[in-house]
């Protein structure tokens, strides 16, 4: 465990909390892509199947449970509790365009051809593209609430910190995981355009709106 990894995990946790706080306080999930949140719930479910079979540390187990809970509570808020405020007309990204290639790739490129390993690989590939419905929704409506942009910023920061974590682990432990690294780089690239808008607009007190 290194500083990049712990800050990355905390940033991830903060992102998920911010999203829940936004929904809870405003009693609205306007501007949030339910499809992205379903994908994240699917990511955690397929990745953390080893929760009971493979103990790593108390930290690891607790974080997995918290991540799963946050993901499912968020989906519940969007599709049940505050369903009336859900902006379904703008959440139109076609999930099959992500799921079909991701399922195919997880069968083709994995570490071992076992059910849990293929599902783990699926979760890694899916996470790298899970935010696309959300980014698509923002580009469609042309704007995002400031708290939603903070959510996206911390989600992107988590990815960037994980890249630093992998460089660190490669240098100190000679550990590397090609599947995670390649997917992590792809995922981080998706946030670059957003990071630019966040720094040039949101941090200067302006609302994120696209021309």
């Amino acid at each position: 465990m290194n500083v990049f990894r712990i800050l990355g995990d905390l940033s991830h946790l903060l992102a998920m909390f911010l999203l829940l706080v936004k929904i809870w306080r405003s009693k609205s999930c306007a501007g949030i892509s339910g499809k992205s949140q379903i994908l994240f719930a699917l990511v955690f479910t397929t990745r953390y199947l080893d929760l009971f079979s493979n103990f790593i540390s108390i930290y690891n187990t607790v974080m997995k449970v918290v991540f799963l809970l946050c993901a499912y509570v968020t989906v519940y808020m969007i599709y049940w509790k505050f369903r009336k405020t859900f902006d379904i007309e703008n959440d139109t990204f076609r999930l099959e365009f992500l799921l079909v290639p991701v399922i195919g790739l997880s069968f083709l490129v994995n570490y071992s051809y076992t059910p849990t390993e293929v599902l783990w690989t699926f979760s890694i590939y899916l996470e790298s593209v899970a935010i696309l419905p959300q980014l698509f929704m923002i580009s469609k409506t042309g704007e995002a609430e400031t708290i939603t942009t903070h959510y996206l910023f911390f989600l992107g920061l988590y990815r960037a910190l994980y890249l630093a974590n992998w460089i660190w682990r490669y240098q100190t432990e000679n550990f590397y995981d090609q599947i995670s690294v390649v997917s992590g780089v792809v995922q981080t690239i998706f946030y670059c355009d957003f990071f630019y808008l966040y720094v040039t607009k949101v941090l200067k007190g302006k609302k994120l709106s696209l021309p």
Binding site: R5, D9, H12, R47, D50, N54, I56, N60, M63, K64, F67, Y111, S112, T114, E117, W120, Y162, N165, D177, S180
Partner: peptide, 10 residues
């Protein structure tokens, strides 16, 4: 052969 890759990250 059963092979388990260690996934110790979140």
């Amino acid at each position: 052969r059963e092979f388990t890759y260690v996934h110790d990250e979140l």
